[in-house]
C-alpha cells in the first residue's frame, strides 16, 4: 500500500521530486521500521491491515479537511457531525423495518444527505455570516453533539435489526483480494479528492482562496461558492466515513467521534498541508492519518511504555515525525 501511495503521489508529471511532498512518506517509513524493531508482530499482514483499516475514518474525514484548510478555513465540527450522522443513519435503519439492501441504501443516502447538509450549513454561515470558521464550527460542533445525545437520550443508538447488521457488517470487515473495504474506500476518496484538488478549476480556486483571498477575488474567483463547496465536500467525506464506521460496531454513542476533528487536522498538518491555507496535499493527509494510527498501535505493541505515559510518548513521536520532515526538506 505504501508503494501505491508513492506512485500516485508523484502524479504531478514533474521530474524534480518535491521533497516537501515526499517527507510524510519518509516519516511513515521511519515509523514502520521503528515498529518492526520494537515488536516483530508489528510487521504481520493482519496487524498492518488492521491499523490501516482503522485509520480509514480519520483519513476520509481528513481528505475533506484538506479542502477546507487549503482554502483557508477550518472545520471543528467533523467529529460531532460524524456522531450525529451515524446516529441518524442507525435510527433510519431501525425504523425503516426490513433487512434488505433497499433499507441499507436508504440509510446510506440519508447519511450522506445529512452530512452534506451539515457541511452546507457550516459553509453558508461562514461565508454569508462572515464569521470566523473557528467560531462557527465550534458552535455547530456543540449543536451536532447535543443532538446526538438528545437522540440517544444519553444512551446508545444501536442497530436493532440483526439481519441488517449482518448484511452491513462486511463493509468494515470484508475485503476484496485481501484488501479490506475501508482501505479501498479511503483510497478511492483520496484519489477522487486529489483529482478534484489538483486537476479541476475548482481545486485551483480553493488553493488560490487559501493563498490570498483578495487576489482570488480580484482574479474573478467566485470565492463564496468555492468556500461553501469546501465545507460541503468536508460534509460528504464525513458521511462516507460514517458509512464505513457504522458497520464496525453497529452503534453510535455520545462519545462517537470525540476529538476526531483534532485527529483530522493533525493528519492534514502531518501530511504537509499549510494550516494557514494555500497548500493542499491529499496523499500526505492520507499518510498523516495512517501515521497517527500507527503510533497508537506501536504504543500498545511495545512492552516498555507504561500505560500512564502512552499519551506523552505519542505526542513526542508526532512532534519528532514533524521535525524529521522539516529537516528533510531543509537539508535540500
Amino acid at each position: 500500500m505504501t508503494e501505491t501511495v508513492l506512485r500516485t503521489g508523484a502524479e504531478k508529471r514533474r521530474f524534480n521530486v518535491d521533497m516537501r511532498a515526499l517527507s510524510p512518506f519518509i516519516a511513515l517509513i521511519v515509523l514502520v521500521i521503528a515498529g518492526a524493531l520494537i515488536n516483530p508482530d508489528f510487521l504481520t499482514a493482519s496487524n498492518l491491515l488492521n491499523v490501516v483499516t482503522r485509520s480509514a475514518f480519520i483519513a476520509i474525514i481528513a481528505v475533506g479537511a484538506t479542502f477546507v484548510i487549503a482554502g483557508g478555513g477550518l472545520d471543528l465540527s467533523v467529529g460531532s457531525m460524524a456522531a450525529l450522522t451515524a446516529g441518524v443513519m442507525i435510527l433510519t435503519l431501525n425504523n425503516m423495518g426490513t433487512g434488505d439492501m433497499g433499507t441499507l441504501a436508504l440509510g446510506m443516502l440519508v447519511a450522506i444527505g445529512l452530512s452534506a447538509a451539515c457541511g452546507l450549513a457550516n459553509g453558508l454561515i461562514v461565508t454569508f455570516g462572515r464569521i470566523e470558521p473557528f467560531i462557527v464550527t465550534l458552535g455547530t460542533m456543540g449543536i451536532f453533539r447535543s443532538l446526538v445525545i438528545w437522540l440517544a437520550a444519553g444512551g446508545t443508538i444501536t442497530m436493532r435489526n440483526f439481519e441488517l447488521r449482518e448484511l452491513y457488517r462486511p463493509v468494515y470487515f470484508g475485503s476484496v483480494f485481501g484488501v479490506p473495504y475501508p482501505i479501498i474506500a479511503f483510497m478511492v476518496v483520496a484519489a477522487v479528492g486529489a483529482l478534484i484538488l489538483y486537476r479541476t478549476s475548482f481545486g485551483r480556486h480553493v488553493v488560490a482562496l487559501g493563498s490570498n483571498e483578495d487576489v482570488a477575488r480580484y482574479s474573478g474567483v467566485p470565492i463564496w461558492r468555492v468556500r461553501t463547496l469546501t465545507y460541503i465536500i468536508q460534509g460528504v467525506c464525513v458521511g462516507i466515513a460514517v458509512l464505513v464506521y457504522v458497520p464496525r460496531l453497529g452503534s453510535a454513542t455520545p462519545t462517537t467521534g470525540l476529538l476526531w476533528e483534532l485527529q483530522a487536522i493533525t493528519a492534514v498538518v502531518i501530511g504537509g498541508t499549510a494550516l494557514k491555507g494555500g497548500i493542499g496535499r491529499i496523499w500526505g493527509t492520507v499518510v498523516g492519518a495512517v501515521i497517527l494510527e500507527l503510533v497508537a498501535n506501536i504504543m500498545v505493541l511495545s512492552n516498555f511504555v507504561s500505560e500512564f505515559l502512552v499519551g506523552a510518548v505519542q505526542g513526542a513521536i508526532i512532534i519528532i515525525a514533524m521535525l524529521v520532515q522539516r529537516s528533510v526538506h531543509r537539508g535540500r
Binding site: 508482530d41 493482519s46 488492521n50 460496531l249 454513542t253 498501535n297 500498545v300
Partner: peptide, 16 residues
C-alpha cells in the same frame, strides 16, 4: 470507557 478505543486496543492485543 469508549467502544471505538476498546476495539482498537483489543485489535492490538490480538496482534501482540
Amino acid at each position: 470507557w469508549n467502544r471505538d478505543d476498546a476495539f482498537k486496543v483489543m485489535q492490538d492485543y490480538l496482534a501482540k
